[in-house]
Design a protein around this nucleic acid. Structure first.
Length: 107
DNA sequence: GGGGTGACGCGTC
DNA sequence: CGACGCGCCACCC
């Protein structure tokens, strides 16, 4: 399995209403240093319908500026459609950051 | 086989 | 608090 596949797997597991950071995805994929690779992986996103790349934001909670796979604000609308408000083009990681953890993890 | 690039992250100035 | 630079890993030419 390529690194990309693992990354796609992680992104694909992001539940609706939650978002994950590139670093988070990278870490879940196996290595947190894949941050850049994650971006590249989503860039070539082979399955936009199965891989909600719009739920992946940078560690600042902002949507990627180079987001041009659908049309800028497109990501914002999709996120809001998921119930994730993006007032200033950024989401509240404190509340919406995906927490892939064992049951019992409370912040 | 080598070099350059990229949807990032973190530390430091 | 804001801006700049360096480091990381994988993929393409």
């Amino acid at each position: 399995m390529n690194s990309f596949e693992r990354i796609y797997e992680v992104v694909r597991e992001i539940p609706r209403g939650n978002v994950a950071t590139y670093g988070q995805v990278a870490a879940l994929a196996g290595n947190r240093r894949w941050s850049r690779v994650v971006g590249f992986a989503l860039h070539v996103n082979p399955d936009p319908e199965g891989i909600p790349c719009y739920r992946v934001v940078n560690r600042n909670g902002e949507v990627s500026s180079a987001f041009a796979f659908g049309g800028g604000n497109r990501q914002i609308e999709l996120l809001e459609a998921d119930g994730i408000p993006c007032p200033d083009g950024r989401v509240d990681l404190a509340k919406y950051q995906w927490r892939k953890v064992a049951a019992g993890w409370i912040e």
